[in-house]
């Protein structure tokens, strides 16, 4: 049941890239979008299984406007309460 904090580096050479990324992330309920600083965007992800977490990160990395994804926080607690 991983929870991750990620920093996305957005391709600032593409016009309107930040808005497009935020719009794409908004369609994923597992993602909480945080604040952006220049070409950096902070997000948190909350998924049920590690495989889903990896898949979500791969999906984010595959977004055409995202050039890099840094993992800044991760929690894998197996006894974590599922508050859904």
């Amino acid at each position: 049941m991983p929870i991750s904090g990620l920093v996305l580096t957005i391709d600032h050479e593409q016009p309107d890239s930040l808005r497009q990324v935020v719009a794409a992330l908004a369609e994923r309920p597992e993602v909480t979008v945080g604040e952006s600083f220049g070409c950096k965007l902070a997000i948190a992800t909350d998924t049920e299984r590690a495989e889903v977490d990896r898949g979500l990160r791969a999906w984010i990395e595959a977004l055409p406007q995202v050039v890099h994804v840094d993992v800044t926080f991760i929690a894998f607690d197996s006894d974590m309460e599922v508050a859904r």
């Binding site: 904090g5 950096k40 902070a42 948190a44 926080f73």
Partner: peptide, 8 residues
């Protein structure tokens, strides 16, 4: 997680 990502 969000705070850590925001700080970085």
């Amino acid at each position: 997680a969000l705070a850590a990502a925001t700080g970085v």
